[in-house]
Design a protein around this nucleic acid. Structure first.
Length: 590
RNA sequence: GGUUCCAUAGCUCAACUGGAUAGAGCAACAGAUUUCUAAUCUGUAGGUUCAGGGUUCGAGUCCCUGUGGAAUCACCA
């Protein structure tokens, strides 16, 4: 039980003793005491006034008095308006510190036995990854880590969109003007090479449209009838028929892309437990739709297409099968959802997908519910906001897309320059330096993205490099490195808490530490890694202030020093745990 | 047009789900290093929380109205 809960339950006892009735837990409102007031935990007494039948101040005074008299761990209290600020004793905090320090799994919540699948990344294979994918990948990774910390079994999956007209466009452009170029022959990363041919296709397409329009055709017709587009469509039909030549090229070019993706995933430090491919799942779900049709849940229009009527839910009609019997996006998502729940007996399925698809997931959930699956409510769309540039959305047409590999590279160089400027690399060999630059650059980038509430649109200015000072990843990394430096020097010294008095600042650091498991639970429930990021920053900031005006290893009193070493070590360990949830590594030196 | 989401300091973001005088960082200015790492710390300045109404002991947070912005409503995925 942490200190907040401890006070809450003590307060409940006090209310019962004083006023004779057991208060509803919802009336016991506690919160950490604000900095400008004296105390550790604050009880808000307004909700209790009906029970006490007294004025706010008098009620707070009575409860405070009772607590001080009857609860040994409570050292004092003060009342400000309807707020009862409670001070816990130093020995209480020392005990808390000792128990945290003795818990090797601090921050890991007990196993729930539940299995959660997290789908994220889900790229198309015709373009390299960009900044939007980075936010998706980082969120997907960190929500997975977070749910593990919450005690769930987590399965990370990727669903690659490896088929469709867009892939055929790249293939066609490569056939027309690739001259057999490969990643090996060109020295290019495969995903970028294929992406360039996708752009090339659009250039060719535009040129043809222009020509047709010049010949008197309307723009609309020209865009539908450009020969190269027809060719791409014909290619897709061939692909669906299994034409060996088309399929062979498709395999080859997708292979290049996967190699490129793996490299990007590697530099981001993410991986998956399983990868699904749309080329294997896109036909699924039809049986489900037919079943719904026969049960009268869906209906067929004259042209043969199948729909679900959602007007009763305030939405529109949704297409589930085309007139020609082929499936659409929704069809396959219905199919894969069922397949996954049945295959892995999932308790929850989380889709990390941008908020532009809110409607899709709303409909998906509704339809699964109509089909009678009791797990329909166990689907959660982790909807995140777009990353915008100062001039608005990223547009490939205007060349404003921030490429993932470019950004990673730039961050690396900035980290390197900054480190060299500060001149702290003495005694580190090249590979140690390289690994440090990676940690720092990815730490800065990941923290920058993850500290923002996932739901919100966020802004990224490519002209300004991501900061290394202030509320940043490197700030937290630096705090950790300084602690590690102390601990290296303290090797062999005793590390025990509870044998010395605590400073007020030490008590507030311990209070923060003690609130961490609850913070993990909260962040998990809110599906928000940002809460963990903000916690880590608060802890690092609090510790830095402490570090600034307190001697640790140079403290002469052995009992005091020993306790400070325990505190420092516990802070470092907790920072590592929190940052690990975000996928950020902490260096021992920097 | 319908639906959903968003609006907080010059900029980027917080605010424990309705609690105290709305907090950090960046940028600006002024300081701190013979000291366990100054990628740090301290201070100054910066706000009608888009506007207006309502609910109550109490609203950035909940409910209306308006303004501004975003997404979505495809036989695309």
């Amino acid at each position: 039980m942490n200190h907040i809960d401890f006070i809450a339950s003590s307060a409940a006892t006090a209310v019962k003793a004083l006023y004779g009735t057991e208060p509803c837990p919802c009336l016991i409102q506690t919160q950490p005491t604000r900095k400008e007031f004296e105390g550790d935990v604050t009880l808000v007494v307004f909700p209790l006034l009906k029970t006490s039948r007294k004025a706010p101040e008098a009620t707070a005074e009575e409860i405070g008095h009772w607590l001080k008299e009857n609860v040994a761990q409570i050292a004092g209290y003060n009342v400000v308006k309807g707020f009862l600020n409670i001070k816990l004793s130093g020995s209480y905090w020392a005990e808390v510190l000792s128990s945290i320090a003795a818990d090797p799994d601090f921050g890991q919540l007990p196993s729930t036995g539940k299995t959660v699948m997290v789908e994220f990344s889900s790229p198309n294979t015709n373009k390299p990854l960009h900044l939007g994918h980075i936010r998706n990948n980082l969120l997907g990774w960190s929500i997975s880590q977070l749910l593990k910390a919450c005690g769930h079994n987590v399965m990370r999956v990727n669903l690659v969109n490896d088929r469709g007209i867009h892939i055929c466009k790249s293939m066609l452009a490569w056939l027309k003007c690739g001259n057999g170029v490969t990643p090996e022959s060109s020295g290019m990363k495969g995903d970028h090479l294929v992406g360039d041919f996708y752009v090339k296709f659009n250039d060719l397409f535009k040129a043809e449209v222009k020509e047709l329009v010049a010949g008197g055709m309307s723009e609309e017709d020209a865009e539908k009838n450009a020969p190269i587009l027809k060719e791409a469509q014909a290619m897709l039909v061939k692909w669906e028929q299994g034409d060996p030549e088309v399929v062979g090229l498709w395999r080859r070019m997708n292979g290049w892309v996967y190699e490129g993706f793996d490299q990007t995933y590697g530099s981001l430090g993410i991986s998956f437990d399983r990868t699904y491919y749309e080329s294997q799942t896109y036909k699924g779900g039809k049986a489900l739709v037919e079943d719904g049709l026969s049960r009268g849940i869906f209906f067929r229009k004259e042209d043969g297409s199948v729909w679900c009527d959602l007007t009763g839910d305030g939405l529109d009609q949704k297409l589930l099968l085309r007139g020609d019997g082929t499936s659409v996006y929704m069809t396959q998502d219905l199919g894969t959802a069922r397949q996954r729940f049945e295959e892995y007996n999932l308790d929850e399925m989380i889709y990390v997908v941008g908020n532009e698809q809110n409607y899709h997931f709303q409909v998906l959930k509704l339809i699964l519910g109509k089909l009678g699956f009791d797990w329909a409510d166990s689907i959660y769309h982790m909807s995140y906001g777009m990353v915008e540039l100062p001039e608005g959305k990223m547009k490939s047409r205007e060349g404003t897309v921030v490429d993932a590999d470019d950004l990673v590279g730039k961050m690396y160089n900035t980290a390197k320059e900054t480190s060299l400027e500060l001149g702290k690399l003495e005694g580190m060999d090249e590979s140690e330096q390289d690994s440090l630059f990676r940690m720092l650059s990815m730490g800065a980038m990941k923290y920058f993205i993850l500290k923002v509430d996932p739901k919100k649109t966020m802004l990224f200015d490519p002209k300004e490099s991501i900061d290394f000072n202030g509320n940043t990843g490197p700030f937290i990394q630096y705090t950790h490195a300084r602690i590690q430096s102390i601990l290296r020097k303290a090797e062999g010294l005793e590390k025990v808490a509870g044998k010395a008095e605590l400073l007020p600042k030490e008590e507030s650091v311990i209070a923060l530490l003690a609130s961490y498991p609850e913070k993990v639970r909260e962040a998990g429930a809110a599906h928000s890694p940002a809460l963990i990021a903000n916690f880590a920053y608060d802890l690092a900031k609090e510790f830095n202030q402490y570090y600034h005006d307190t001697q640790i290893i140079r403290e002469e009193d052995a009992a005091v020093r020993s306790q400070r070493l325990v505190l420092s070590g516990t802070v470092a360990r907790t920072l590592r745990h929190a940052m690990n949830i975000l996928g950020i590594e902490l260096p021992d030196r920097m």
